[in-house]
């Protein structure tokens, strides 16, 4: 049994919130450069150039890449040989978010009640997903999620015989429906199988993968490639103003499911592909 003080987790969450909101993912910046070479439309090239310039300014001036610094989604993989001490785990995560958003001058975008609203003033609570895994460490992944793209996310309970064609059709339908709203170039997270909520969580977790990293399963890796190609043929383009660079990557996760169904969840992420991790 290894003891870990939850204040160590709090500090990690604080730092990860700040850094991932301010420093752009270098893989994403490389993808913008590649897009600039491939785009023929001057507007598309100009948008990508602007995004590169924005990332430079954000890092230099220590400003968030995007003003929507998101609702904090935190994945915790907790080793089963860990004994957490020093306070409650959820409170520690929320305190980390509170400090990160205050001290990092990040926007407070969370309301107390989904219907009657009222800003909580400190961007808490975070959405926390915990898993118990073998080992004696705690892996923390912070993925702040902006709602321009979160609002363009969908779940469909497909039929068991819908196959890869059915999945492709649904994902493309979602991307077309989203159009310019989720701030393309987008990253598309897809969760296939499990149950209703499992599919959604898998789609979200797919958005914590390094940009463009292929699934370890050959059939899913092929699906990712095919979907990326098809999405970039829609013409939506950067910011929906037309072009070839609509998505930077498609990441697919899958899980066994019930004989009667095939849930498919599509979680879209904007080009501010923010995720950062640390193991304590």
């Amino acid at each position: 049994m290894r003891e870990i003080d939850v204040r160590e987790i709090e500090r990690a969450v604080r730092d990860l919130c700040v850094e991932t909101n301010i420093v752009a993912d270098t893989d994403v910046l490389d993808a913008f450069r590649k897009g600039m070479e491939e785009e023929e439309s001057p507007v598309a090239r100009e948008v990508l150039r602007t995004l590169l310039e924005n990332a430079r300014i954000a890092a230099e001036e220590r400003l968030p890449i995007c003003q929507d610094t998101g609702m904090a989604v935190v994945f915790l993989d907790i080793g089963q040989d860990v004994h957490l001490v020093g306070g409650g785990l959820e409170e520690a995560v929320n305190e980390g978010v509170r400090k990160g958003y205050r001290e990092g001058y990040l926007r407070k975008s969370v309301v107390k009640h989904p219907v009657t609203r009222g800003n909580t003033g400190d961007n808490t609570p975070a959405v926390i997903h915990t898993r118990i895994v073998p080992g004696d460490g705690v892996k923390i992944t912070v993925a702040p999620k902006g709602f321009g793209s979160e609002n363009m996310s969908f779940v469909k309970m497909c039929t068991p015989t819908a196959g890869f064609d059915g999945i492709r059709k649904f994902v493309l339908e979602c991307v077309r429906k989203a159009g310019g709203n989720p701030c393309p170039p987008i990253v598309v997270g897809v969760g296939i199988g499990g149950t209703f909520e499992k599919a959604a969580i898998m789609a979200k977790e797919a958005l914590t993968r390094p940009l463009g990293e292929r699934s370890g399963r050959e059939d899913l890796a092929r699906l990712e490639e095919e979907l990326l190609g098809e999405i970039n043929k829609t013409g939506i383009g950067p910011q929906g103003l037309g072009g070839k660079t609509t998505a930077l990557a498609v990441h697919v996760n899958a899980f066994p499911t019930h004989i009667a169904g095939m849930p498919v969840a599509v979680n879209i992420c904007c080009h501010a592909y923010r995720h950062a991790g640390k193991t304590v």
């Binding site: 602007t50 310039e53 924005n54 954000a58 001036e61 890449i65 929507d68 701030c183």
Partner: peptide, 8 residues
Amino acid sequence: VGGAGALL
């Protein structure tokens, strides 16, 4: 340009 908040 959405997501260019620092530049703007």
